[in-house]
Amino acid sequence: MSEAVTALAGATYEGAVTVADGGLTGMVQLRADLADAAVATAVKAATGADLPDRRRISAAKEQRLLWMSPDELLILTDHGAAPDLVKRLSTELTGQHALVLDLSDARSRIRLSGQGVREVLAKGAPVDLAPGRFEPGEVRRTRIGQIAAAFWLLSETEAEVICFRSVAPFLFDWLSTAARPGSLPGHFR
């Protein structure tokens, strides 16, 4: 049986910031009313994690729960674990008005690392990325240049970006251009 492949095939760019294929990632989409306590209970039972607050990320074990909208959650997990997670969630949500889908292949994950990840993102996203205004634990859906994307910080020197698979090579090239040596403005400190 063939193994799944990413759209970026392990690409890496080393510049002022390193841009790298984030690799295969399990991504499970839940559409349900996140304000519904029964949904929170089901999600907790299936993942062990509490529902994230608005625009936040919650986590349990290897899973991260990204708040995408008041009725959409994206759960990141190991690529191989996604089908089981879909089953667990669907079971826990039986009887609820909810949609659970394995979208592990729909999006690509790109990792940024190094001093200056905030500035690379700020070249393309109309978002206040200053320290104190955007911190680890928050997820932001916006655009990077012309590409719809979501991103979050893991630390001051690490960020992750997700975008649709078909534009991942384009966004990878865009981020690599934004990360080329000597090109950071040095605005954040």
């Binding site: 759209a7 070249k123 393309g124 240049g145 012309q146 590409i147 649709f164 698979r165 078909s166 534009v167 090579p169 384009f170 090239d173 865009w174 251009t177 934004a178």
Partner: peptide, 15 residues
């Protein structure tokens, strides 16, 4: 800005 050459406009690629 960055939007020139190969970055002028997004291109979507199939798998």
């Amino acid at each position: 800005g960055e939007a020139r050459g190969s970055l002028f406009k997004p291109v979507r690629r199939t798998p």
